[in-house]
């Protein structure tokens, strides 16, 4: 009865929003596995921040807020940002972290400047664009969810088709190249999949926090399994869970932003996994350590005991 009441109160809109959040959580969770295993977690941050000016420019050029157009603008800018980072690292002596923060803040800053500019010019149609900074899932419409579903589904299908190639690329790039796989092409492809996973979540989660959706579910999933297929599956589930629960919690009261709530839900999953997962979890570790220490103590005591007895016998039998 309680549930039914809940459903009728929020009904259609909420279901649409939750569906969108679940979809983007699934996609970013699954693909995030590769980012985490490749130690490219920062890449998501660069992509999401760099995407902001792309969204604004796409709107300025077309005057339209059609999700596909905005997402396309985001993807192009996100890609461009990543490309610039990789080129800086390859062509200069500037290190990764510096290149990352340089590009990330420049692009994001540029996006903010453009955004304030069009807000001041009083184009009423621009309202809602600033949702892309912190995310606003509540404004998600059916066409947004459709866009997420199609693009995300496409990315997941590519991931599944190239399962073996991507796994090899992430585990041992040198070996992959030696047996003839074009690792540069695969690398670009994988980065493109990251770009898709990021840009489809920008509206709901926001540019500032979206990269956490790439990282958090995968980090949590790694705690529970030692098998990459299971890790991808679990990360997808965790991502969806975070998306849905975040959406529901933020819908309870007016003014709770969805993006941060989704990220907090993901963080709870990560925290729980790090604490309680078997084998890798902290609790498990400390139990194991405690046990080891105790059995070591017993073993040492036995050894000392045995040695003492032996000495005793020696001393007793030694002629004085």
């Amino acid at each position: 009865m309680e549930n039914l009441h809940f459903l009728t109160r929020f009904d259609y809109t909420l279901i649409i929003v939750a569906l969108g959040a679940a979809l983007l959580g699934t996609v970013s969770g699954a693909l995030g596995t590769y980012a985490v295993l490749r130690r490219q977690s920062l890449l998501g941050d660069a992509i999401s921040h760099a995407a902001l000016p792309g969204i604004v420019i796409a709107f300025m050029l077309t005057g339209s807020k059609t999700p596909l157009i905005l997402v396309l603008g985001a993807a192009i800018a996100g890609w461009l940002g990543t490309l610039i980072i990789l080129s800086i690292v390859r062509l200069t002596r500037i290190k990764y972290d510096s290149a990352f923060s340089l590009v990330l803040s420049t692009f994001f800053g540029f996006g903010l400047v453009l955004l304030t500019q069009i807000q001041r010019n009083g184009d009423a149609n621009q309202a809602g664009l600033d949702d892309f900074i912190f995310g606003q899932a509540a404004t998600m419409l059916k066409r947004d969810v459709l866009t997420i579903g199609i693009l995300g589904g496409f990315a997941l299908v590519i991931m599944l088709i190239l399962w073996k190639e991507l796994k090899l690329l992430v585990f041992d790039e040198g070996f992959a190249a030696s047996i003839g796989f074009p690792t540069r092409v695969l690398d670009i492809l994988l980065t493109s999949l990251f770009v898709i996973a990021i840009v489809i979540g920008l509206q709901a989660v926001g540019a500032v926090l979206m990269s956490a959706m790439l990282v958090a579910p995968a980090v949590a999933a790694r705690q529970w399994t030692d098998k990459i297929s299971l890790m991808v599956l679990l990360a997808a589930c965790f991502g969806a869970l975070a998306g849905v629960s975040g959406t529901f919690i933020s819908s309870i009261a007016v003014g709770i932003p969805t993006g941060p709530t989704i990220i907090l839900c993901a963080t709870v999953i990560v925290g729980f996994s790090i604490a309680f997962a078997p084998n890798r979890g902290l609790l498990w570790n400390s139990i194991r350590q405690h046990r080891n220490r105790r059995s070591l103590k017993i073993a040492t005591a036995k050894l000392i005991g045995a040695a003492a007895t032996k000495n005793q016998i020696k001393n007793d039998t030694r002629p004085s």
Partner: peptide, 19 residues
């Protein structure tokens, strides 16, 4: 040159030789 904490098992790594 590789991360041995990668989530996979012995047989799977050896099978990569067939890729």
């Amino acid at each position: 040159s590789v991360d041995w904490d990668f989530p996979t098992n012995v047989l799977d790594v050896v099978m990569m030789g067939r890729y």
